[in-house]
Amino acid sequence: MNDKRTLYRNRRAGKVAGVCAGIAEYFNLETWLVRVAVVSIFLLGGSGVVFVAYIALWMILDEKPLNATNDTSDLAVKKKVWQAGEPAKQALQDVSAKFHTLESRLRAIETYVTSDQYELKRQINNL
C-alpha cells in the first residue's frame, strides 16, 4: 500500500492559519477535536510549547494547493465520533438520493426509447 500523504496547512478549513485543520486532515480526525486538544494543552500549562509549535508549523508547512485531493475516497464514512468523514446515516441518504436520481433518468430514457416518436425518428434516419 503506497500511503503518500503530505502534511499541509489548510487555510480554507482553518480559523487562524490552518495548522489545526491540516493536522486533522492528515490524521483523519475532526478539526474541532484537534482545536480542542491544542487549546486544552495551551490552557493547562503548555502555553509556551503550543505557541512556539503553532508558529513554527505556520512558517514551515506549505499551504494546501487547490488541486490537492484528499487520499480518502469520495464517500468517507466515519466509524468513530472523532474521525473525519460523513456519518453513516447521512452517507446512506446521499447514496439513496443518487440512486433515486439515476432511476428517474433511466425511466425517462426508457419512456423515450419505447415511444412512437423515437421509432419514427429511427425509421426516418434509416431512409
Rank of each mutant, 00 (worst) to 15 (best):
M1N: 08
N2G: 08
D3P: 02
K4M: 07
K4Y: 05
K4R: 08
R5V: 04
R5Y: 05
R5K: 14
T6K: 14
L7H: 05
L7M: 04
Y8H: 05
Y8E: 04
N10S: 06
R12C: 00
K15G: 05
V16E: 12
G18Y: 07
C20H: 13
G22F: 12
G22T: 06
I23Q: 00
A24S: 10
A24F: 11
F27K: 08
F27Q: 08
F27Y: 14
N28D: 11
E30S: 11
W32D: 11
W32G: 12
R35G: 15
V36G: 01
A37T: 03
V38H: 04
V39G: 00
S40V: 09
S40K: 15
S40P: 03
I41Q: 11
F42G: 01
L43D: 15
L44F: 13
G45V: 11
G46K: 07
S47W: 15
G48K: 10
G48D: 15
V49D: 08
V50Y: 05
V50A: 12
F51I: 01
Y54K: 01
A56K: 04
L57I: 11
L57H: 12
L57V: 08
L57T: 06
W58Y: 10
W58A: 02
W58C: 09
I60V: 15
L61F: 07
D62P: 10
E63L: 04
K64E: 09
L66R: 02
L66C: 00
L66H: 03
N67W: 10
N67D: 15
T69E: 15
T69I: 11
T72N: 13
S73M: 09
D74F: 13
L75F: 05
L75E: 05
A76C: 07
V77E: 11
K78S: 11
W82Q: 03
W82L: 06
Q83P: 02
Q83Y: 06
G85K: 04
P87W: 05
A88R: 06
Q90K: 12
Q90V: 14
A91F: 12
L92P: 01
L92A: 14
L92N: 09
L92V: 11
Q93W: 08
D94R: 14
D94N: 10
D94C: 01
V95F: 08
S96K: 03
A97H: 11
F99I: 12
H100A: 14
T101R: 15
L102T: 02
E103D: 12
S104C: 03
S104R: 02
L106P: 00
R107M: 06
A108H: 10
E110P: 00
E110V: 01
Y112M: 07
V113H: 02
T114G: 03
T114K: 11
S115M: 03
D116P: 01
D116N: 04
Q117A: 03
Y118F: 15
Y118G: 00
Y118L: 02
E119M: 02
E119D: 07
K121Y: 11
K121N: 13
K121Q: 14
R122Y: 04
R122V: 03
Q123G: 02
Q123D: 09
I124Q: 14
N126P: 00
N126M: 11
L127H: 06
